[in-house]
């Protein structure tokens, strides 16, 4: 809280019971999302065919993470009203009453500007421009516009989360290429089944908040169909990436196994109806959601493994 206790004679300061601590400001930056950004941006940077000095790489990844965190703070500022309603988000710093919305806005804007300028100085202008666009896309296009207006919110908004590996690649090479956009596409196509599985078992949350998730606007049957459709398209893309310059035998093996499991999960979700899901408390949907986290981590881990092995003549084709 932005309270200032003025020391006046005869007046005792009243301690605030809900004083914001440093961790509350860190929570505004969505550390879990930041960790995904750090990992995918690092993979993009290391998979690129140009070596970057470790210190420059570290600083670049740091500023990409700070930019992602800044967009998280702007998202929390804008969405404070619906975060109060949803069970999943009501303990965030603003709805919990620990941090004022204005503080989140200030922190978000300051860190956005700082991260973009410093990435331009540390790496190059194209990487900085991409980071600025990513922040704008997440805070304005997704949070302010799409999230509350269309059931395609997380489909289009997913692009914001897909940019970090492209930025990492551009930090190293100074230019974009097909491989960078393949990594973008992997996250972009992964986002809808990941979030729609969550929406299936978080049931009333989005409904209560009035967020037009596909489950709310088109029903749960249509959502199950969409999860399967996107998972099939994702599997084609993910396995196909194995035959490109960022792929290789290790990546291909990981992709084949994971996509077989992911397809099976999507098929199981598609086959079920609400009665079956409620009978086991959405066990299949929850398992699919957990697998989706592992899915993305291992795909990018495999791309990283191929890149790391390349100098020893082992990675790639």
């Amino acid at each position: 809280m932005s309270d200032a206790t003025i020391n006046q004679p005869g007046q005792t300061a009243t301690p605030m019971t809900d004083e914001a601590q440093f961790g509350d400001y860190v929570a505004l930056l969505k550390p879990r999302v930041m960790s995904l950004v750090v990992f995918t941006a690092l993979v993009g940077l290391l998979a690129a065919p140009v070596a970057v000095h470790p210190m420059v790489a570290f600083a670049a990844i740091l500023f990409i993470a700070v930019g992602a965190g800044a967009s998280g703070a702007l998202n929390m500022w804008w969405d404070a009203d619906i975060d109060r309603v949803m069970k999943r988000t009501r303990r965030r710093p603003i709805p919990a009453g620990k941090v004022e919305a204005g503080e989140a806005l200030g922190l978000g804007l300051a860190l956005s500007g700082m991260s973009v300028v410093l990435l331009a100085l540390v790496a190059n202008f194209m990487a900085a421009a991409l980071l600025a666009f990513t922040i704008f896309f997440y805070a304005v296009v997704y949070s302010m516009w799409l999230k509350r207006s269309t059931p395609q919110n997380i489909v289009i908004g997913g692009a914001a989360g897909a940019f970090p590996p492209v930025i990492g690649w551009v930090v190293a090479t100074g230019a974009m290429s097909v491989e960078a956009w393949l990594m973008f596409a992997l996250i972009f196509m992964w986002t809808p089944p990941h979030f729609w599985a969550l929406a299936l078992f978080m049931r009333s949350d989005y409904d209560d908040a009035g967020v037009p998730m596909l489950t709310v606007t088109h029903g749960r049957r249509v959502t199950r169909n969409h999860i399967l459709g996107y998972t099939v398209a994702l599997a084609v893309l993910a396995v196909g990436t194995g035959f490109t310059a960022i792929g290789g035998p290790v990546y291909l093996a990981v992709a084949v196994v994971l996509n077989a499991l992911f397809l099976k999960g999507a098929l199981d979700i598609w086959r079920r109806d609400e009665a079956a899901s409620e009978a086991d408390n959405f066990a299949v949907e929850k398992a699919f959601f957990k697998l989706s986290l592992l899915y993305l981590f291992l795909h990018f881990g495999a791309i990283l493994a191929e890149a790391v092995m390349k100098p020893y003549g082992l990675g790639g084709w």
Binding site: T5, N7, A13, P15, M16, E19, A20, Q21, F22, G23, Y25
Partner: peptide, 11 residues
Amino acid sequence: EHELHRRRFSR
């Protein structure tokens, strides 16, 4: 030490 300093030490 003012109470404010203790309260805001972690920050």
